[in-house]
Every structure is written in C-alpha cells, then in structure tokens.
Design a binder for these strands. Structure first.
Lengths: 337, 337
DNA sequence: TGCTGGCACTCGTGCCCTTCGACTGCTTGT
DNA sequence: ACAAGCAGTCGAAGGGCACGAGTGCCAGCA
C-alpha cells in the first residue's frame, strides 16, 4: 500500500524527528538518506504521505512531523526487536548474574534496570495473586483484640490482613483458630477462599474459636483486587523528554493511579511484545506518550508484565529490544528460583 | 532585631509573593496592607531588608522577592500551626473515621490525604523496624531448596527473607528448624538478632536442621537497613508549582531515592514540627523546595514521620496546619489499634 | 528624627516592524 | 516520472520604541 520510496522517506522523517524533536523538511530527507532523489520529489511524496495521514505539518511553512499513524507504520515495519547495544546488554547480563532471592526486591530493581536502559519510565507488574495457592496461614496476636492473618502464597508473595475482634481473645484460642483455618484454606487459591462459606468450617469448634474464624474469613474475603505489585521507576528520566510542565503533571497523575497503569499493561498482555502509540493507549492524558509492553513467563506460564512509558517520539527500537530482553531474562531468573 | 514595621512589610512581601510568584513592589505593599505609610517609606525599609539579606531583587527595576532568610523569618514569626480550613478539617475527620485496620494501607492513604490537603507532595515514613520486637517467625518451603522466612513484628509489619539452601530439604526438617528458630529469636528486636552468634543455638540439633538454621541466620542478618516503609503521594500536584521541567526532573530524582527522602525527614525528627527551607534541606537539588515535617507518636513513642515537599514559596501556614493535624490524628489512630 | 512627596532614572515587557530563512506547492522542462 | 526553479507563506529572530512598574535619593514638613 505504500510505495517503497515513500516508506523510506517516512522512515527517515520519523527517525529524524525522534532524534531532534524538530519538524523535518524535504531538504533534510533528500540529503541525509539513501534516497537518491531531489528534494522536490521528496516534497511530492511527503505531500502524499500527509494526504494519507502519515505526516502532519504544524504550520504551512514548516517541515513535517509524524502522526500516530506514521509512528504506527514505522513501528510495524521495524518488525520485532533488534539487538541491544554492547554496553546495555552488558548491563543486563551483570544485573541478572548479581541478582538474588527476594522477588519483591528483584522486581523493584528490574524497574530501575529498565528505566536506566531506556531513559524512560519503567513499569513492572508482579505476578497475580489470584492464581497462586496458599502455602501457609498464620494468625498472630498483636494485641488482645487485634490479630494479624499472614498468608504465604506459592508465588512467594505474602499477604497480610488485620482482623479486629470484638472481644479480648486468648492466644490459645487464636492458635486453635489458626490450625483450623490452615486445614481449610491451605492449598486453595485466594479466589477460592473468597467463595467458601465460613459456617461449614465452624462445626464442632468452641464458640470463641468460631468467632475468630468468622472474623478472619470476613477479612480474607475483603479487598485483594488491587494487590498486584507494581513497581515504577525512572519517572525523572522520562520527564525530561517533555517540555511542558502541564503535560508532565498529567502523566504523573496517571502513574500515581496504579490501577490505571496495571490495566494499561494488562490490556495488551496476551499480545506478547507490543506497542501502544499515543491515543492507542486508550487514555487521553497519554496522547503524547507511547508504551512498550511485554509479558514475562515463569515456569512456562504468563506471570506478569513489564513495560516502558515514554514520549511518542521514543526510540522504539531501543525500547523494544530492552523490554524484550529484560522480559525473557526476568522470566528465566524467576523460573529457576 | 527587626523593626515592627519592617517585619510587617516583610510579611506582606512574602505572602504576596507566595500568592502571585511575581516580584513585589513597594506600591503593592503600601496600598494592600495595614501598614499606613507611603510607598516611599516602604521603599526605604525594603532597601534595608535587602541589605540585611531578607529580600533580593531579580533586576534593578523590579520588585523584591524573599530570600531563604526572608522565608525563615516569616515561618518563625508564624509561631506554630494555625487552624485548618473548614473543608480541610472535615476531610481529615472523615478520613480518620473511615479508616480501618491494615497499617500499610493506612500509611499509603495518609500520604494521599496529605497531598490532597496541601496540593504538594506528601511523604509518610512508617515505623522503624529496628525497635519492634519479633512476634512470630515461620519458615515456609516454597520449593525443595527455597525457604521463605516470614517474620511478624510487634508493629504489625511483616518482613520476609528468602533462604536458599544448598541441598534439598524435607518439610519436616524445615519445620523443626522453625520451632528452634522461634524459640531463639521471638521477643528479640531485629537489631539484636543480627548480633546473635548462630552457632550457640545449634547445639543439640541434627546436622540438616543446623544447616537450615545457619542459612536462615545469614539471611536475617542481611540487609534490613532500608526497609523502612516510605509512601510518597501527590507528586503530580507538586510539580505544577514549578515552571521548569529541568527543576521538576531533579526533584523527582530525589524522590525516587527513598533513602535520601528518609534521611531528610529523620534529620529533623527530634525537633518536632519543623520546616526546612531551600538549602536548609541540605540538598542542592532542593534549593527551590521547602519541607514541612512532623513526627507522629504511637503509644507515647515517636514512631515515624510525615511531611510535605513543596516549592519554597509554599503556603506555609496551610502546610504546617495540615502536617500537624494529620500527624497527631495518625498517631492516635495507630495507637488505639 | 522620621515620614512623605516628588523627581529622575533604570530596565524589563510588550508591540510593531523588518529581515531572514526554511519550508512548501506548483509549473515547466527533460 | 523526476528535477529544477520560482513564487509564496509563515515562524523565529532582532531592532526600535513607548510604557510602566519600580527604585534611589533629596528636600521639605511634623
């Protein structure tokens, strides 16, 4: 659908604009690429590209800048991620060789790695708790009326719920409740636990133990909708790509609402490595932003996703490579552990 | 040291500048305050104030803006926090009446409350783990060679350490180790645990149990220097107070380094409610920022601190009131639980 | 002595104008 | 189908000018 030469010209405009943030004129394109045609010819093609919606001009006498459609074409024809630069891939290797143990810490560090690789904001979403099974449950008395329920999930994540009791309760009673609770919910998923009717597990228990169990079930059923772990890093780097404080403020507002961020990433999760450009993100406030996302696999299953958020004029090739490499390395690293 | 009238004039300049972000001229001051003197007199005093370092002028024919010393005087003579506006104090009341259980969640929400009250960035630092005693410890096998050590502290906080074993280990062995570990460290503080010599607690244990214990001790001794919980909210609000993206980027960089933020807050922790203006923060990148901090008390002891970070031209009275009120309310709320 | 009114002076800001140059679109020639 | 040239557009940059907000200083008045 697009002339070979037009494609080359469009490519040139996009790369140049990404580099300089300045509208690109026909002269530049003619002189600086492998298109051996005069600027006049380039002009004609650029006019056509504009008519087809790939380019736009800010004002009559200025050069052209890519539209979202232009970026989209550029990204599509890029065809998958390239290779990482030497120093970057060195950085990734060294990161994953030094990395150790604690998953939470590791995900946080990964977001820092990714933002340092790309100079954009990096988002790392941890594994969903919903699918993980409960490995262990424990009730700890913090004060006579407050008990902390601590769940350990098979993913290594921890979930805590504080349970408030209406009467002072002895530790012995709490411990009895803990044993009973464990026998009912260990091995289940969190989602399954939410559907359990507490009453059936209360038969044969002393009334004070039953009271504790009832309260615990209520607490466990409570909100664990947005307890995905989200790690965001490198916002300060990304900010430098924009020139209006207004814009920056809006973007930060989005990033602060972690729910929004998570849903952004998860929308594209089943598509593998993918890019959302400008309004494709589905969020008006991100009109000047693009997102590069990839899921990562742990033990053969999609666990979570990572991504970078930058300006629409981002270095897509670098971002794609970085996200792709880090996603696979992260997955491996989490699998073997 | 400062004339009554000079003080009034200085006050007027500061409030006006905070409001408008524009240099303030003698005319404005003379006409808009309760200083019933002519602009000429004001001019003389302003010249004196400049000579003494309270004011500065950007260029010869412009008005004056406050220096750090000027803000400092302004804040000092403010003498403690005022009362909160009606709608704000309503917001605080409703927040703390609806609040419930989970401390971590509550601290995060508090940072949102504080930023929404002040329109600046809010920082909430959770209680130090170092002083809390260990309420319970549990070892959970995630895989044959990976064990998760889960500590519950008296503060209600949870700490997890993953322990990697060099050989596959049965759950029975892990459980035995857990019992032994609990008998040694429950009731201690984390700091105390770090000083325990593992070997003395190994006597009489089977060698495989001893191996697990040794690994667990190493893991527990490991880094829990920066596991203070820090919650930062409202950066997007604060950003709007600045006009250079450059500045914004630097400030965000600081906020991303949570260690720096924590030390900023803790430096002033023993001083009670206090304010650091510009370079007083001790951080060059925060030259255009001020911080208002207060500790909060739980059960009669200083637990953590909260604060807001805004531009040097912040609304100090509102910020002081908000921080003061939220700190005490937060303390109460955490104490009764 | 302390405040005021007045005056000359400084300079940044906004405005208009021009120039400049980087573009474009179109038309014509090969 | 491409190249070359040309006229036209329009923003950015720069100079000149008037304006006005502000200042410092001085002389006069309570």
């Amino acid at each position: 659908m697009l002339d070979e030469r037009k494609a080359t010209i469009l490519r040139a405009v996009v790369t140049e604009y990404i580099e300089t943030a300045q509208p690109v004129g026909s002269g530049h394109v003619a002189s600086s690429t492998q298109v051996n045609v005069s600027s006049a010819t380039v002009r004609n093609d650029m006019a056509a590209l504009e008519a087809e919606g790939y380019l736009a001009q800010p004002h009559t006498s200025a050069g052209r800048i890519p539209t979202e459609k232009g970026y989209r074409f550029f990204v599509d024809q890029l065809g998958g991620p390239g290779k990482l630069g030497a120093s970057e891939s060195q950085q990734v290797r060294s990161f994953f060789s030094h990395t150790h143990g604690e998953m939470e810490q590791m995900l946080a560090d990964t977001s820092r790695l990714l933002s340092s690789l790309t100079r954009y904001a990096a988002v790392v979403v941890g594994p969903q708790h919903e699918v993980a099974t409960i490995k262990s449950v424990q009730l700890v008395s913090l004060s006579p009326r407050i008990v902390l329920a601590v769940l350990v999930l098979s993913s290594g994540a921890i979930e805590k719920h504080s349970v408030e009791l209406s009467t002072d309760t002895e530790e012995l009673v709490v411990n009895a409740a803990a044993v009973r609770l464990a026998s009912v919910i260990v091995g289940q998923t969190l989602a399954a636990v939410a559907t359990i009717d507490p009453e059936i597990s209360l038969t044969g228990e002393a009334s004070d133990v039953a009271t504790v169990l009832r309260a615990a079930f209520v607490s466990l059923r409570g909100d664990h909708r947005h307890d995905d772990q989200v790690f965001i890093g490198g916002t300060s780097d990304m900010v430098s790509s924009f020139d209006a404080v207004r814009t920056v403020s809006e973007i930060l507002r989005i990033l602060e609402q972690q729910l929004v961020v998570v849903s952004l990433l998860e929308d594209v999760l089943d598509r593998g490595l993918s890019v959302a450009i400008g309004r494709e993100t589905g969020n008006e406030a991100l009109a000047d932003c693009s997102i590069v996302v990839a899921p990562y696999m742990v033990d053969g299953e999609t666990a979570g996703s990572i991504g970078v958020l930058g300006p629409t004029r981002m270095h897509y090739d670098q971002a794609l490579s970085a996200v792709a490499v880090v996603a696979t390395r992260l997955g491996h690293s989490l699998s073997e552990g």
